[in-house]
Write a protein that binds this DNA or RNA. Structure first.
Length: 415
RNA sequence: GUGGCUAUAGUGUAAUGGUCAGCACAAGAGGUUGUGGUCCUCUUUGUACGGGUUCGAAUCCCGUUAGCCACCCCA
């Protein structure tokens, strides 16, 4: 009976894990240049947090959360997204009273109980950014500029940024009413899903993929016609700033987000190399959220990048085979006496930062074969003969040259 | 939650219902005293799981699980 990872969850093995590290490192570098700082929050939170932030009627809350009771009967949930936790932490630590602006980023796993498919796992990693405390369009623009920079930095250049504004508390209700009015009388012509959407979240009808529904909504009223003066102004300024910052984007009045807390600016980064789940990053503004969760009335804007999806775009770049040897020194050891003699040398080299491997047994031939497989730059051969003479043989693998070195001089020779 | 496709060593793949499930790569051990890559020899590892049909099942049927793809939805 084999034990395997559960459905929708997978291991990131070497050498792929190295690629993850590289991307994460580049991301951290970008965050630093934008003066964002890392926040780490628990993976498990009270269920209530997500119900209240993401929204009771959303699919994420209704059917996708990993929710369970702890030993005292408290309802806990594995976080399905990052923003709620960050906002919770922001409120809990009273960050707003220490600094009116908080610029935070995170990196970690999220959990959603969904049917896995291309680019979608039940456990998936996100890189996220939250900028709290700034209502100005400049904040939206800065976050989007950061996002673009990050993609450029990791070498992904064939994605498209699409933006929209969902309006705010004041003007969105009018828009929803308009949609419902538009649907009246012809709802039965829409697909089953859209009929359900008209009740639950009428905005979603806008991004139905079915051709029939698409046709029917060709002349549906657009949000832009319902923006209040402030939303209009806000969105115009965001666009202006993006243009000034040379960020390429497309306006898409049909972008609708599935999480309730979004308002005003929303955006998605799309790729046609990802299959049906074509968004590699998405986000937007969430001005009422902090207050809704019991904090001060602080605005916010942020995004999350799907790490697995990003890696799909990154790793398809052809990587050149590098035959260059690694700076790895491999110790071929024959006999227990040789092993003993090698210990202090190995320890010293590693302490100096040198990467060192050693054979755990086998013939010299197999040890050499292994050194070659590991792509070691040098092999130190230490057998019974060498121990007697108080020396070791140092072989440079690329040239095949080798020389005898006194044991006492080994560290010096190799570092 | 729904639908379609799939499941044979670590990986990629063969095998009309009928010998011991074959091949390649990978991995490991050797190739006259203790020296890597090429080459040669040998070795390890497999029909996802559970039922059924049959004289006989990798092969046909049912169920389960997992993977892939899509819907819903989302990063």
């Amino acid at each position: 009976m084999k034990i395997e990872a559960i459905k929708g969850m997978s291991d990131v093995l070497p050498p792929e894990s190295e690629n993850w590290q590289t991307v994460e490192q580049l991301a951290r570098e970008v965050f630093r240049t934008y003066d964002f700082q890392e926040i780490r929050t628990p993976i498990v939170e009270p269920t209530e947090l997500f119900v209240r932030s993401v929204g009771e009627t959303t699919d994420v809350v209704q059917k996708e959360m990993y929710t369970f009771k702890d030993r005292k009967g408290l309802s806990l949930t594995l976080r399905p997204e990052g923003t709620a936790s960050v906002v919770r932490a922001y409120i809990q630590a009273s960050l707003s009273s220490k600094d009116p602006i908080a610029k935070l980023y995170y990196f970690g796993p999220m959990y959603r109980y969904e049917q896995p498919q291309k680019g979608r796992k039940r456990e998936f990693y996100q890189i996220g950014v939250e900028l709290l405390g700034a209502e100005t369009p400049l904040a939206d623009a800065e976050v989007l500029m950061l996002l673009e920079q990050l993609f450029l930095k990791v070498g992904v250049t064939d994605t498209n940024l699409e933006i929209n504004s969902l309006g705010c508390k004041n003007c969105r209700p009018d828009y929803i009413k308009a949609i419902q009015k538009f649907l009246k009388g012809k709802l039965n012509k829409f697909c089953d899903d859209c009929q359900k959407r008209s009740q639950k979240n009428p905005l979603r009808i806008l991004d139905c993929k079915k051709e029939g529904c698409r046709k029917l909504t060709e002349d549906i009223p657009l949000v832009s016609d319902f923006w209040c003066v402030e939303c209009h102004q806000h969105f115009r300024e965001v666009r202006g700033l993006l243009l000034a910052g040379h960020v390429k984007f497309k306006e898409n009045p049909r972008i609708v987000r599935g999480l309730d807390y979004y308002c005003r600016t929303t955006f998605e980064v799309l790729s046609d190399r990802l299959g049906a789940q074509n968004a590699v990053a998405a986000g937007g503004r969430y001005d009422g959220l902090v207050k809704d969760l019991g904090g001060p009335d602080v605005p916010g804007v942020g995004f999350a990048i799907g790490m697995e999806r990003l890696m799909m775009l990154v790793s398809t770049n052809p990587e050149p085979r590098t035959p260059n040897p690694k700076p790895l020194i491999y110790f071929a050891l024959l006999g227990s006496e040789a092993q003993q003699k090698a210990m202090s040398v190995i320890q010293e080299l590693r302490a100096k930062g040198q990467s060192v491997g050693c054979a755990y047994g086998g013939s010299l031939k197999s040890q050499m074969r292994r050194a070659d497989k590991l792509n070691a730059s040098h092999v130190v051969i230490l057998g019974e003969n060498e121990v007697v003479k108080g020396i070791a043989i140092v072989k440079e693998m690329e040239t095949g040259n080798q020389k005898e070195v006194l044991l006492g001089r080994l560290v010096e020779e190799l570092s």
